[in-house]
Simulated assay, not measured.
Amino acid sequence: MGAQAADTRRTEIRYVRGDATAPQGKGVKVIAHVCNDLGGWGKGFVVALSRRWPEPEAAYRRWHRERSGNDFGLGAAQLVQVEPYVWVANLVGQRGIRTGRSTGVPVRYEAIDAALGRLGEHALRLGASVHMPRIGCGLAGGRWELIEPMVAARLTDRGVPVTVYDHT
Protein backbone atom coordinates (compact mmCIF):
# COMPACT_ATOMS: atom_id res chain seq x y z
CA MET A 1 0.00 0.00 0.00
CA GLY A 2 1.33 3.47 -0.88
CA ALA A 3 1.83 6.35 1.51
CA GLN A 4 -1.33 7.89 2.85
CA ALA A 5 -1.98 11.59 2.34
CA ALA A 6 -1.59 13.60 5.54
CA ASP A 7 -5.25 14.68 5.60
CA THR A 8 -6.85 11.25 5.12
CA ARG A 9 -8.72 9.71 8.05
CA ARG A 10 -8.11 6.10 6.97
CA THR A 11 -6.53 3.89 9.60
CA GLU A 12 -5.42 0.26 9.57
CA ILE A 13 -6.82 -2.59 11.63
CA ARG A 14 -4.49 -3.31 14.53
CA TYR A 15 -4.10 -6.94 15.62
CA VAL A 16 -3.03 -7.79 19.17
CA ARG A 17 -2.97 -10.80 21.48
CA GLY A 18 -5.27 -10.29 24.43
CA ASP A 19 -8.79 -10.08 25.76
CA ALA A 20 -11.31 -8.00 23.81
CA THR A 21 -13.32 -7.49 27.04
CA ALA A 22 -10.34 -5.48 28.37
CA PRO A 23 -9.82 -3.05 25.48
CA GLN A 24 -6.47 -1.27 25.25
CA GLY A 25 -5.99 2.45 24.76
CA LYS A 26 -7.44 5.72 25.89
CA GLY A 27 -10.73 7.41 25.16
CA VAL A 28 -14.16 6.01 24.39
CA LYS A 29 -14.12 2.35 23.36
CA VAL A 30 -16.80 0.14 21.82
CA ILE A 31 -16.47 -3.64 22.12
CA ALA A 32 -18.21 -5.25 19.14
CA HIS A 33 -19.40 -8.82 18.79
CA VAL A 34 -21.90 -10.80 16.71
CA CYS A 35 -25.19 -12.11 18.11
CA ASN A 36 -27.80 -14.45 16.67
CA ASP A 37 -31.34 -13.51 15.66
CA LEU A 38 -33.00 -15.99 18.07
CA GLY A 39 -32.43 -14.09 21.31
CA GLY A 40 -29.98 -16.77 22.46
CA TRP A 41 -27.01 -15.77 24.60
CA GLY A 42 -24.74 -18.16 26.41
CA LYS A 43 -21.92 -19.55 24.25
CA GLY A 44 -18.76 -18.09 22.80
CA PHE A 45 -17.52 -14.55 23.36
CA VAL A 46 -20.74 -13.48 25.13
CA VAL A 47 -19.78 -15.65 28.11
CA ALA A 48 -16.71 -13.46 28.69
CA LEU A 49 -18.80 -10.30 28.22
CA SER A 50 -21.38 -11.46 30.75
CA ARG A 51 -18.66 -12.26 33.29
CA ARG A 52 -17.62 -8.60 33.18
CA TRP A 53 -20.96 -6.81 32.74
CA PRO A 54 -24.59 -7.99 32.98
CA GLU A 55 -25.99 -5.07 30.95
CA PRO A 56 -25.26 -6.24 27.37
CA GLU A 57 -27.06 -9.56 27.86
CA ALA A 58 -30.03 -7.96 29.62
CA ALA A 59 -30.33 -5.30 26.90
CA TYR A 60 -30.00 -7.88 24.11
CA ARG A 61 -32.67 -10.16 25.63
CA ARG A 62 -35.03 -7.20 26.14
CA TRP A 63 -34.35 -5.99 22.57
CA HIS A 64 -35.24 -9.46 21.24
CA ARG A 65 -38.28 -9.86 23.50
CA GLU A 66 -39.69 -6.47 22.37
CA ARG A 67 -38.66 -6.93 18.71
CA SER A 68 -42.14 -6.26 17.35
CA GLY A 69 -41.66 -2.61 18.38
CA ASN A 70 -38.00 -2.04 17.56
CA ASP A 71 -35.29 -2.64 14.94
CA PHE A 72 -34.13 -6.07 16.18
CA GLY A 73 -33.19 -8.35 13.29
CA LEU A 74 -30.35 -9.29 10.99
CA GLY A 75 -28.12 -6.26 10.37
CA ALA A 76 -29.21 -4.36 13.48
CA ALA A 77 -26.79 -2.91 16.02
CA GLN A 78 -27.48 -2.11 19.67
CA LEU A 79 -25.02 -0.10 21.79
CA VAL A 80 -25.05 -0.63 25.55
CA GLN A 81 -22.99 1.55 27.87
CA VAL A 82 -21.20 -0.54 30.53
CA GLU A 83 -18.69 1.98 31.93
CA PRO A 84 -18.29 5.74 31.55
CA TYR A 85 -16.03 5.28 28.48
CA VAL A 86 -16.89 1.72 27.42
CA TRP A 87 -19.81 0.51 25.32
CA VAL A 88 -20.71 -2.94 23.99
CA ALA A 89 -22.16 -3.27 20.49
CA ASN A 90 -24.51 -6.21 20.01
CA LEU A 91 -24.44 -6.81 16.23
CA VAL A 92 -27.07 -9.19 14.85
CA GLY A 93 -25.19 -11.03 12.12
CA GLN A 94 -26.05 -14.66 12.64
CA ARG A 95 -29.21 -16.51 11.50
CA GLY A 96 -30.04 -18.99 14.24
CA ILE A 97 -27.40 -21.17 15.83
CA ARG A 98 -25.37 -24.11 14.61
CA THR A 99 -27.38 -27.23 15.41
CA GLY A 100 -26.10 -29.74 12.88
CA ARG A 101 -23.79 -30.16 9.94
CA SER A 102 -26.55 -30.10 7.33
CA THR A 103 -27.88 -26.66 8.26
CA GLY A 104 -24.76 -24.77 7.15
CA VAL A 105 -23.08 -21.98 9.04
CA PRO A 106 -25.23 -19.36 10.79
CA VAL A 107 -23.10 -16.35 9.74
CA ARG A 108 -24.83 -13.85 7.46
CA TYR A 109 -22.20 -11.67 5.84
CA GLU A 110 -24.67 -9.08 4.52
CA ALA A 111 -26.06 -8.66 8.04
CA ILE A 112 -22.59 -8.23 9.54
CA ASP A 113 -21.80 -5.63 6.88
CA ALA A 114 -25.01 -3.70 7.62
CA ALA A 115 -24.46 -3.89 11.39
CA LEU A 116 -20.85 -2.68 10.97
CA GLY A 117 -22.17 0.29 8.99
CA ARG A 118 -24.48 1.18 11.87
CA LEU A 119 -21.64 0.65 14.34
CA GLY A 120 -19.48 3.02 12.28
CA GLU A 121 -22.07 5.79 12.65
CA HIS A 122 -22.23 5.29 16.42
CA ALA A 123 -18.43 5.15 16.77
CA LEU A 124 -17.98 8.37 14.79
CA ARG A 125 -20.66 10.11 16.84
CA LEU A 126 -19.00 8.96 20.09
CA GLY A 127 -15.44 9.61 18.87
CA ALA A 128 -14.77 5.98 19.82
CA SER A 129 -12.36 3.26 18.84
CA VAL A 130 -13.75 -0.22 18.18
CA HIS A 131 -12.40 -3.41 19.79
CA MET A 132 -13.44 -6.94 18.82
CA PRO A 133 -12.49 -10.56 18.53
CA ARG A 134 -12.58 -11.87 14.94
CA ILE A 135 -16.33 -11.31 14.80
CA GLY A 136 -18.49 -13.84 13.02
CA CYS A 137 -15.69 -16.43 12.94
CA GLY A 138 -16.38 -18.39 16.11
CA LEU A 139 -19.73 -20.10 16.61
CA ALA A 140 -21.19 -18.24 13.62
CA GLY A 141 -18.75 -20.14 11.36
CA GLY A 142 -17.65 -17.20 9.21
CA ARG A 143 -14.32 -16.62 7.51
CA TRP A 144 -12.18 -13.65 8.58
CA GLU A 145 -10.88 -13.09 5.05
CA LEU A 146 -14.49 -12.20 4.09
CA ILE A 147 -15.27 -10.15 7.20
CA GLU A 148 -12.01 -8.18 7.44
CA PRO A 149 -12.75 -6.12 4.27
CA MET A 150 -16.14 -5.18 5.75
CA VAL A 151 -14.46 -3.98 8.95
CA ALA A 152 -12.11 -1.90 6.83
CA ALA A 153 -14.85 -0.42 4.62
CA ARG A 154 -17.33 0.35 7.41
CA LEU A 155 -14.89 1.41 10.13
CA THR A 156 -11.19 2.01 9.44
CA ASP A 157 -11.70 3.55 5.98
CA ARG A 158 -14.01 6.07 7.69
CA GLY A 159 -11.42 6.93 10.34
CA VAL A 160 -12.61 4.66 13.15
CA PRO A 161 -9.63 2.96 14.83
CA VAL A 162 -10.13 -0.82 15.17
CA THR A 163 -8.24 -3.31 17.31
CA VAL A 164 -8.83 -7.03 16.77
CA TYR A 165 -7.93 -9.30 19.67
CA ASP A 166 -6.71 -12.84 19.28
CA HIS A 167 -7.24 -14.49 22.65
CA THR A 168 -4.07 -15.81 24.21
Rank of each mutant, 00 (worst) to 15 (best):
M1N: 09
M1A: 15
G2D: 11
G2C: 07
Q4R: 15
A6R: 09
D7F: 13
D7G: 05
D7R: 10
T8S: 14
R9A: 14
R9G: 13
R9I: 12
T11W: 03
I13N: 02
R14E: 14
V16C: 09
G18K: 07
T21V: 14
A22C: 13
A22P: 01
P23S: 11
P23A: 10
P23N: 08
Q24P: 03
Q24A: 13
K26M: 11
K26V: 12
K29M: 03
V30S: 08
V34M: 08
N36D: 08
D37R: 01
D37P: 05
G39W: 03
W41N: 03
W41K: 06
W41L: 02
K43F: 10
F45I: 13
F45S: 09
V46P: 00
V47E: 11
L49A: 04
S50P: 02
W53Q: 02
W53S: 01
P54A: 11
E55R: 12
E55Y: 08
A58V: 09
Y60V: 04
R61N: 02
W63C: 02
W63H: 12
H64A: 12
R65G: 10
R65L: 12
R65E: 13
S68I: 06
N70P: 11
D71I: 07
F72M: 06
F72G: 01
G73C: 03
L74T: 07
A76V: 06
A77W: 01
L79H: 09
V80M: 02
V82L: 08
V82Q: 04
Y85R: 14
Y85K: 15
W87I: 07
W87Y: 15
Q94P: 00
G96W: 06
G96N: 03
G100F: 08
G104L: 07
V107G: 00
R108W: 00
A111V: 02
D113L: 03
G117V: 06
R118W: 03
L119M: 06
G120D: 07
G120E: 04
E121M: 11
E121Y: 11
A123N: 02
L124C: 09
R125H: 14
L126Q: 10
G127Y: 05
A128E: 04
H131N: 04
P133S: 09
I135R: 01
I135E: 00
G138Q: 02
L139I: 08
A140W: 00
G141W: 03
R143L: 11
R143I: 04
W144C: 05
E145F: 12
L146A: 09
L146M: 08
I147N: 00
I147T: 00
I147K: 00
E148V: 09
V151T: 07
A152W: 10
A153E: 10
A153S: 14
L155P: 00
L155D: 01
L155H: 00
R158A: 09
G159T: 02
P161S: 06
P161A: 10
T163S: 04
V164F: 01
V164I: 12
Y165L: 07
D166R: 13
D166Y: 02
H167T: 12
T168Y: 14
